[in-house]
Design a binder for these strands. Structure first.
Lengths: 342, 342
DNA sequence: GATTTTAATGACAACGTTGTCTTTGTTGGT
DNA sequence: ACCAACAAAGACAACGTTGTCATTAAAATC
C-alpha cells in the first residue's frame, strides 16, 4: 500500500523545508512549537520512518550490534531479547554477530563488521567482554561499546559496563551450604578462561575461609559450562572418590548442575539426602531438574536492558559516567536440591 | 590504524575510475582482465569493504533479516547460527527481529523494519512462516523472503521454501512404537496454531490407521511446546487415567517429552519399562534426559543454511525455482526411552 | 577504406539523510 | 530610530555507493 515516505514528503505536506523536519526528528531545540506540531502531524499522517541507510551514510547510525560467543542458548536468547526490546523502544535495529572469542582475527573481523554495517556501538557479553586485547582495540578505534562483566569492582577505565557480582553470590551459596552442615564441598568449574568462573571460585574460597574450613584442592574440579562436563566430572568424582565423596557440590552454572544431577541419579545417589547440589544462573535447567535446583538468580533480561540503555546513551554522544553503571548481585534462591548434611 | 577505505581510494590506487571498481566488486562482466587484476590487488591492499549504508541507500542491500517468534531457545539459536554462517560466507549482515506472531500490527511492524533497515529479505520460521496473511502482504509488497515450513507437499505459490516433512517423521516414530507392541499411545500436542503440530498429529493418526488401531480421542491431549506443558499434561493424565494409562507417549517435541519424563519420575513410573516416551527434534533435551530420548532428528543448522542460500540467491535477483527448494524428512533416532510394551 | 557494431571505460546523477553556512525576522539596548 | 545580538528557518553540500548514459577504442562488416 503506502510507499516509503521520505523526509521531503513530510516537508512538503507540512509546508516547511526538509531541514526543519530533520530538526524535529532529531529533537534539535531550534524549532518553534507551531512548526513542530505541524511537522509531527505530517510525520504521523505519512507514517514516516527515517531511513537507516541514509543516516548511516552521513555518520550517525540507528543500529547496534550484539557480539557474542557463548554456548548457553538460554543466556544468549535472554540477552538478545532484552537488547532488542530496548533497541525497539529507542528506534534502533539490532544486528547480531556470533563469533569465536579465541580467534586471532577477531579484531579485524569485528572492525570490518562495524565499518560495513555502521552500527553505532556494540554490546559485549562474557567471555568477549573480558578479552582485554579486543577491548583496547575498540577503545583506540573510538568504537562505542558497553560490557557486561563479572567482578566485584569497577573493571578498568574502558567505558560503561554492567557489573555482575558473581563473587558475592557464590559466597552466599557456599555459606548456605556451610550452614546446612557441609564442609566437604566440591566445586565444579566452568571454562577456565571465563572470568565469571574465576569470580565464582573466589567467592567459594572466601566463604570456606571465613568459616575456617580448610580447602581440599581435590575438591576444585576443572571443566566447562556444559551439561556433559557436569555429567563426566561427577561420574569420575563418584568413581575415584567413593570413600571421600563430597556431601555437597557447587556447580558453576545450572547446566553443569543438571549434569551432576543426571550423573548422581545414574549412580543411584539420592539428591538431596545423600548429595546436595547448587547451581548458578536460574536458567530453565534449574526448574526442569528434579529436585528443583538451588541456585543464584541472574536477572539476564534486566541486565541486557540496562546495558543497552547505557550503550544507546553513549551512541547518542551523551556522556556515560560511572554513576550510570550498575552492579547486580545475583540473588540466592533456595530450592530443593540442597539439604542438611546427613 | 587503517581508516575505512572508500571505493575512490581503491580507484586512485588502481588508476581507474571508481565506477570500474564498482563493476569489479559487483562482478559485472564488462571489465578487462588486466584492470580487474589491478583493482583486486588494490582492494586487497587497502582491505576495502563496501559500505552497506551507501549500498542500501541506492537500492540494493547486503543484509538480511531473521524474523522469529519461537519460545524454543535451542531452535532459535541453531537457526540463527546457520543463517549467520551463510550470511558471512556471502558478505551479508544479519539483523534479527523477534516478534509476536499473533500481534495485529505485525505486518506494519515488519514493513517498517524493512523500510528502515533496508534488509534485502527475510528468513521466516514457524509459526510466522505459516501466517498466511503476513505472507500475502509481504508477497504483494514484493519483499523477498524464504520460508521454513512444515508439510508434506509444496505449500502454495508464495516463493521459495524449505519443507520439513514432519508428517512422515511422525509416522515413522509412531510405527516404531506400534512395532514395539504399543497400541494405547498418548499424543501430547504442541501449540495448536503451529502447523508442525498439526502435521505431526496427522502422521501419528495415519500410522495408527495403517496398523488398524482405533484412535482413542482421549489420547490426543492439547498443550503447548513447553516443558511445563509436558509436566502438567502427563501429571493429569496419570491422575485421571490411572486404570487406562497409555503404555507409550508421543510428545510433539523434546521439551514436552522431557516434561513427561519428569512427571513420570515424580509419579514413580519407570521409563521405559512402564512407559515409553518419544520426542521430536533431537534438541539437547533429548540427550540431557535419562533415559536418552527416542526422537526424530531435525537438522536445524543445515535447514537454516539452505534457506539462507535460497534467500540470498533471490535477493541477488536470480530466479529461484521450485527445483531449488528442498524437502527434509527428520530421521528416526531410536534411543533408550522406548521399549517393548509389557 | 569507410562504416557499423561491439566492448570497455568513464562522467555524472541519484538515493535520503545530517552538517555547515546563510538568510531572515525578532528582540532589546542605546 | 538604529544597530547588535539572537533565534528560527532554509539552501546546499556531503556521505559512498549503484544506475544511466556518454565516450572511446577496437573489431567486424561491407
Amino acid at each position: 500500500m503506502s510507499m516509503n515516505a521520505t523526509i521531503k514528503d513530510v516537508a512538503s505536506l507540512a509546508g516547511v523545508s526538509f531541514k526543519t523536519v530533520s530538526r524535529v526528528i532529531n529533537e534539535e531545540a531550534t524549532v518553534s512549537e507551531a512548526l513542530e506540531k505541524k511537522v509531527k502531524q505530517a510525520i504521523k499522517e505519512l507514517n514516516y520512518k527515517p531511513n537507516l541507510s541514509a543516516r548511516g551514510l552521513r555518520g550517525s547510525t540507528s543500529s547496534i550490534g550484539f557480539l557474542y560467543d557463548n554456548p548457553n542458548s538460554n543466556y544468549v536468547i535472554d540477552m538478545q531479547k532484552g537488547i532488542f526490546e530496548e533497541c525497539s523502544a529507542s528506534g534502533y535495529e539490532l544486528l547480531i554477530h556470533p563469533c569465536d572469542s579465541t580467534s586471532r582475527h577477531l579484531d579485524s573481523e569485528v572492525s570490518e563488521m562495524i565499518m560495513r554495517s555502521r552500527v553505532g556501538g556494540l554490546v559485549l557479553t562474557p567471555p568477549i567482554s573480558d578479552n582485554i586485547d579486543l577491548i583496547k582495540i575498540l577503545h583506540n578505534k573510538q568504537i562505542n561499546f558497553v560490557r557486561v562483566v563479572s567482578g566485584a569492582a569497577i573493571p578498568d577505565e574502558f567505558g560503561p559496563f554492567v557489573l555482575i557480582d558473581d563473587r558475592q553470590a557464590a559466597y552466599a551459596i557456599t555459606k548456605h551450604l556451610i550452614k546446612l552442615g557441609h564442609s566437604n564441598i566440591g566445586f565444579l568449574c566452568g571454562d577456565v578462561e571465563h572470568k565469571s568462573n574465576a569470580e565464582r571460585l573466589k567467592g567459594f574460597k572466601l566463604a570456606l575461609a571465613d568459616a575456617d574450613i580448610k580447602l581440599d584442592a581435590n575438591n576444585i574440579i576443572p571443566g566447562s559450562f556444559s551439561f556433559d562436563s557436569g555429567v563426566s566430572r561427577t561420574k569420575s568424582l563418584i568413581e575415584i572418590r567413593r570413600e571421600h565423596l563430597p556431601s555437597a557440590i557447587f556447580a558453576c552454572n545450572d547446566e553443569i548442575a543438571a549434569g551432576t544431577l543426571f550423573a548422581a541419579r545414574v549412580a543411584g545417589i539420592d539428591v538431596p539426602s545423600q548429595l546436595s547440589i547448587a547451581g548458578f544462573e536460574d536458567s530453565p535447567f534449574s526448574r526442569q531438574a528434579w529436585p528443583y535446583l538451588t541456585t543464584a538468580k541472574q536477572p539476564t533480561l534486566e541486565i541486557a536492558k540496562i546495558a543497552t540503555k547505557l550503550l544507546i546513551k553513549k551512541v547518542r554522544s551523551a556522556d556515560v559516567t560511572e554513576q550510570d553503571c550498575q552492579v547486580f548481585c545475583p540473588e540466592l534462591l533456595i530450592r530443593d536440591s540442597t539439604a542438611s548434611c546427613r
